[in-house]
Structure formats: structure tokens, C-alpha cells
Amino acid sequence: MSVIVLLIVAGGAVAAGFLGAFVWAVRSGQFDDMCTPAVRMLFDGGATRRPAPAIVAQMSATSGTTRFAGATPQDDEPRAGALADGVERLRTDVDRNRVDVSGEFGRCL
């Protein structure tokens, strides 16, 4: 029967681990806004943060889908194609999710 003691210790440790994770999540603000993240996850690729400089250089060299502040806005054919594709994909995503999104909003706002 002494194996139960072992189980209790193991079970308690797991439970305490989850409690710790929950405490961390609350204190780091993950429960502050229960609304916007649900909407944000639907965006395809729109980074909300400025990428580190190295990544910026790499991205502007390889992919044409992003343009950064400071870049002169002017026509650029290969980029236009990639961007149009991205917009199209995002639009279908959003169309598919529109009902859900507005439902989410009704709850939040």
C-alpha cells in the first residue's frame, strides 16, 4: 500500500505544476483581455511586432509580402503578385470565419 504515498507525491507534483502554470498565466496578463486574442489568431501573417533587424533584411531579400516603414511606396510587380495572393487567401479565411468572428464580437462588446 505504501505505493499510494508515491502516487500522492507524484500526483501532487503534477497538480502543483498546473497551479503554477495557471498563476503564471494570470500574472503575465493572459486573462486580462479574453477577446482580442480570439480575433487576432485569425490574421494570417500580420506580425504585431517589429521583427529583429536580421530577419527584416532576410525577409526583404526573399519574400515580397512585407514592406516596412521607411521603404518608399512605389510599384513593384513581383511583390504585387505575392501580396495579391496573400490578400486573397486571407479574404477567404476571413469569409469562412466571419460568422464566428461576429459571434465572438457579440460576446465581447
Binding site: C35, V39, T48, R49, A69
Partner: peptide, 28 residues
């Protein structure tokens, strides 16, 4: 007021060079 607002405002770093990050709180 809408999904687009969240999206656009969170792209703020593209418009203003000193901005590191912008996060929208819809509720507030």
C-alpha cells in the same frame, strides 16, 4: 470597432519607425 481595426492598429510598427509593437485591447 471591428477585426480590421485590430489588424490595422497592430501594424503600427510599419508606419512609425520607432514603434516596436502595438497591441489592441478590444474590450477597453
Amino acid at each position: 470597432h471591428c477585426v480590421s481595426c485590430v489588424w490595422l492598429l497592430e501594424q503600427l510598427w510599419r508606419f512609425e519607425s520607432g514603434v516596436i509593437r502595438a497591441e489592441v485591447d478590444l474590450l477597453r
